[in-house]
Amino acid sequence: MTIFRKDSALQISKASRCLEIKSLTDEGEIEGYGSTFGGEPDSYGDVIAPGSFASSLAGHAAAGTMPKMFWQHDASQPIGRWLSATEDDHGLLMRGRLNMAVQRAREAHALLKAGDIDGLSIGYRIKRYSVDAETGVWTLEEVDLREVSIVSIGANENATVASVKAAKQAHELTEKLKAGDRLTEREFEAWLKGLGFSNSQAERAARLHLKRQGEPAKADDQLAFLRALRG
């Protein structure tokens, strides 16, 4: 079970901001920014700080790996390979090549070339962040970069429940539990889904949670309850 803390990984965010492709060749070579630093918060209210990818990119380099290239953040649809990922003053610059032997990659190439889609979007785990208490803006200071997708719409909240928005909600609800407050059935169910429970598990646990609310429960008791449910 993943417990949300500011010093630990939160959730995989399947989409951040959507950024314009810089170049595309007929052979499928592609270049663009998967993320930019600073500026206005994205649709999740986040700002990515310069240097936030450094540790992850160093880890990839040491392991001889690269972030994956997916279509629309779908791990079942790899469409090519990223050949380089570097931070510059502007953001995370990605260079790669679409696998033109793959039908979906050829379709993506055609859509990109026609200008029907023009986005890159990153998938990552948050490792370290800070929050502005006045504005609610999260500054992501270290992220574990997992994949960079070609997308039609960035910051797609429906792409996955494992989004930054879900992570924030789960974190807030965890803090509420730690403070000794009770959660409504809907809040408790949302919290469980943010922690990785399936819809059916979350619904069942929420019903059991309501039956146990005769006395205020401590956060540790709630976590023990969840572990028992997960088995």
Rank of each mutant, 00 (worst) to 15 (best):
Glu157Gln: 15
Gln222Glu: 11
Arg204Thr: 10
Arg186Phe: 09
Gly39Glu: 00
Asp7Ala: 12
Met69Ala: 06
Trp82Met: 08
Arg212Asp: 01
Gly45Glu: 03
Val151Thr: 11
Tyr124Asp: 05
Asn156Met: 15
Ser84Arg: 09
Val47Trp: 01
Arg128Cys: 05
Trp138Lys: 02
Ala167Trp: 07
Phe37Lys: 03
Leu83Ile: 09
Gln201Arg: 15
Tyr44Glu: 12
Asn199Tyr: 12
Asn199Phe: 11
Asp42Ile: 00
Leu92His: 02
Arg5Trp: 13
Asp118Tyr: 11
Ser16Gly: 08
Ile3Cys: 12
Val131His: 02
Gln103Gly: 07
Gly180Ile: 05
Lys168Leu: 14
Ala206Gln: 00
Ala9Tyr: 08
Leu223Ile: 10
Leu57Gln: 03
Ser130Gln: 04
Ile12Arg: 10
Phe37Ile: 00
Glu141Asn: 02
Arg182Gly: 13
Asp42Asn: 04
Gly123Lys: 10
Val161Tyr: 14
Ala206Arg: 02
Pro78Gln: 06
Asp74Tyr: 11
Leu195Glu: 12
Asp88Glu: 02
Gln201Leu: 09
Leu195Asp: 05
Ala219Val: 11
Ser84Val: 07
Ala101Phe: 01
Glu31His: 01
Leu145Pro: 03
Arg128Ile: 04
His73Trp: 13
Asn199Ile: 15
Gly180Glu: 10
Thr86Met: 12
Gln213Ser: 01
Gln11Met: 13
Val143Asp: 01
Glu175Pro: 03
Leu210Gly: 01
Arg182Cys: 06
Phe37Arg: 01
Val164Asp: 08
Glu215Ser: 06
Ala166Val: 13
Lys68Ala: 14
Leu229Lys: 14
Ile117Val: 08
Thr184Leu: 10
Cys18Thr: 09
Leu145Ile: 15
Pro67Ala: 00
Glu141Trp: 02
Leu208His: 10
Val143Trp: 06
Asp144Cys: 02
Ile21Gly: 01
Asp132Pro: 02
Arg204Ser: 10
Leu229Gln: 15
Ala217Ile: 04
Ala217Gly: 08
Ala166Phe: 06
Leu226Glu: 10
Phe197Lys: 12
Pro216Leu: 09
Gly154His: 14
Asp118Ser: 15
Ala155Phe: 07
Ser76His: 14
Gly115Gln: 13
Lys6Arg: 12
Leu24Arg: 04
Val143Pro: 00
Ala114Arg: 14
Ala54Phe: 06
Tyr124Gln: 06
Ile30Gln: 13
Arg104Ile: 15
Arg207Ala: 09
Ile21Ala: 09
Leu192Phe: 02
Ala228Cys: 10
Ile12Trp: 06
Ala179Lys: 09
Asp181Arg: 15
Ala105Ser: 14
Leu93Gln: 04
Asp116Ser: 13
Ile48Glu: 04
Asp132Glu: 00
His171Met: 11
Glu107Ile: 10
Asn99Cys: 15
Phe70Gly: 14
Ala205Val: 09
Ile12Glu: 13
Ser76Asp: 13
Leu24Cys: 03
Arg182Leu: 07
His171Pro: 04
Asp118Cys: 09
Thr25Lys: 02
Asp74Asn: 15
Leu195Thr: 12
Ala167Lys: 10
